[in-house]
Design a protein around this nucleic acid. Structure first.
Length: 523
DNA sequence: CTGGGGACGGGGCCC
DNA sequence: AGGGCCCCGTCCCCA
């Protein structure tokens, strides 16, 4: 668990244990810390006292009901900490004789406990499990400090340094063919023995890197690599017990995708300067240096242990990771996307409007960006642009899409010559005045005149676009042959034969003979 | 270098 | 809630 301790009062007063031990960054002396003007411990002492009062239910004038569980707190503290409570309490400020009761059903009591503890202690206990829900709740309660910390938490776990990235690459390569290296688990188990303190305080890094940043980014990188490691191991175990699996999963594990398949962001990133998909296994030297790194930074590892049962690891997701992984292994991405959806907090609601006299409308907020949508389904759709999930593959060219309609549009325009326009002269053509021309997997129309000039062979027989529309279904699997075809070369997808296309989705249940029938041209 | 067009991604919203 | 349509923005290719 990460514990973010607010450097209360801009660095005065409470320092986290890390800082107290000299591990923290060197802070500039606060301009407000004038000698003799201020007792630095006053604020923390005051907060401690308030927290004590809360625990002893002294002077608590606000009851917060969260899914049936009652939390007692002080109105003034809540008012000072949360925009939501500020609004709520200012409306009921006149009736001070009765304790205010606030009811929430939009986050769990555990989440509110984390937030309330922060309010009264300045210590925010974040884990990979709770960060998204805490962030959502903080968004709901309009607590920007917590929001920022959550963002930093998530952001920091996205920053995979090169070392860890290489590490993952070697792992994913291994996972496709060999057993995971035994050195790594052993490494972590030995660390688990060295566990001393389950909690650790971290200060939020500034913009400028310094000594403390190492522990931050290194730690987050470690988290990232642990997720990946976890997934790689899960993959292996799933492959071992594939038959017992209740979920349908695509089985083209280890087959790489064409460069188009990584989603828009990863796609572009790869085009801009892709990393080499080939990678060498992780050497012992690296493991050694990592061990040194851990020793130096005293990184707490055991909580994010190697064991597959560690929920904290399983639910720790990051955008960068996901995109990078998809570009290399779509199955990993789908597993991640699937788990992301299931592990996402059920409540992502935020209030869209706080104008006076206007009831706030509930919207669904993306945990990865600032985007909000009206409907949960829209959020799910939006999340695909973060997860990189592309569940709709084109059987003709292998290109994958986030939406069925995109696939359909693509298929119609690219592979079915759906546009009744001569590609050359741009004139409108019909079945009578024009012909369909095949070029590789692409089909387009030419009028007879342009066709004669271009000296192309038309493919009039058996061409009926309406018969070959993409079929809506839910599967994700792509035939191995299509993938292998892409692996050879993108250019090699140009075929000689006419293309009789059937785009389907769920072909997990389609027998091999049928697959052969519907894809005769991908040989 | 620039403008036009195609392909695609993504948001809003209706059914 | 899912499917589908419409619209707009962006990227890329090509003339």
């Amino acid at each position: 668990m990460w514990v973010w301790e607010a450097a209360s009062g801009g660095g005065r007063g409470a320092l986290g244990p890390r800082q107290a031990l000299g591990c923290g960054r060197n802070r500039k002396p606060s301009p407000y810390s004038l000698p003799g003007m201020e007792i630095s411990s006053h604020q923390s002492h005051l907060l401690e006292q308030l927290n004590e009062q809360r625990k002893q239910d002294l002077f608590c004038d606000c009851n917060i009901l969260v899914e049936g569980k009652v939390f007692k707190a002080h109105r003034n503290v809540l008012f000072a900490s949360s925009g939501y409570f500020k609004m709520l309490l200012s409306q009921s400020s006149k009736e001070t004789s009765q304790p205010t009761i606030a009811t929430f059903e939009v986050f769990s009591p555990e989440t509110f406990m984390v937030i309330l503890d922060f309010v009264y202690s300045g210590i925010l206990s974040l884990t990979g499990q709770n960060v998204i829900e805490v962030m959502s709740a903080a968004s709901y309660l309009q607590m920007t400090d917590i929001l920022n910390v959550c963002k930093t938490f998530i952001k920091s776990s996205l920053d995979i340094n090169e070392k860890e990235k290489d590490h993952y690459l070697s792992l994913s390569a291994k996972s496709a063919s060999t057993e995971p290296t035994p050195a790594r688990p052993a490494l972590y188990r030995s660390r688990r023995k060295a566990k001393s303190n389950p909690r650790r305080s971290y200060s939020i890094p500034d913009e400028k890197p310094n000594g403390n940043e190492n522990s931050w980014s290194g730690y987050s990188s470690y988290l990232s690599s642990q997720v990946i490691l976890q997934r790689a191991e899960t993959q292996l175990s799933k492959r071992g017990r594939k038959q017992g699996s209740t979920r349908k999963r695509r089985k083209h594990l280890g087959l790489s995708q064409s460069r188009e398949l990584g989603g828009c962001k990863s796609d572009r990133a790869e085009r801009a300067g892709a990393s080499d998909p080939t990678h060498s296994p992780r050497g012992g030297e690296e493991a050694e240096s990592e061990a040194e790194f851990d020793a130096e930074n005293d990184v707490e590892r055991d909580e994010f242990g190697y064991h597959p049962g560690a929920e904290a690891v399983r639910k720790r997701w990051s955008v960068t990771q996901l995109e990078q992984e998809l570009s290399r292994n779509p199955e990993l991405m789908e597993l991640k996307a699937e788990e992301l959806y299931t592990s996402m907090p059920t409540i992502l609601g935020v209030m869209s409007s706080w104008n006076e006299g206007e009831l706030p409308r509930m919207r669904f907020k993306c945990p990865f960006c600032t985007h909000t949508v009206k409907r949960r389904a829209d959020l799910k759709r939006h999340l695909r642009c973060h997860t990189g999930e592309r569940p709709y593959p084109c059987e003709a060219c292998g290109k994958r899409f986030t939406r069925l309609e995109h696939l359909r549009n693509h298929f119609q325009t690219i592979h079915q010559a759906g546009k009744l326009i001569c590609r050359k002269c741009k004139r409108h053509v019909t079945e009578l005045t024009g012909c369909v021309v095949q070029q590789g997997t692409r089909r387009y129309r030419l009028c007879h005149k342009c066709l004669a000039e271009a000296n192309f062979d038309s493919i009039p027989e058996d061409f009926n676009p309406s018969e070959h529309s993409p079929v809506s279904s839910t599967g994700n699997k792509r035939p191995k042959r299509a993938l292998e075809e892409e692996q050879k070369s993108d250019e090699e997808t140009v075929e000689e034969e006419p293309y009789n296309l059937v785009v389907r989705h769920n072909n997990d249940d389609i027998p091999e003979e049928v697959k052969e029938k519907v894809k005769p041209n991908l040989r």
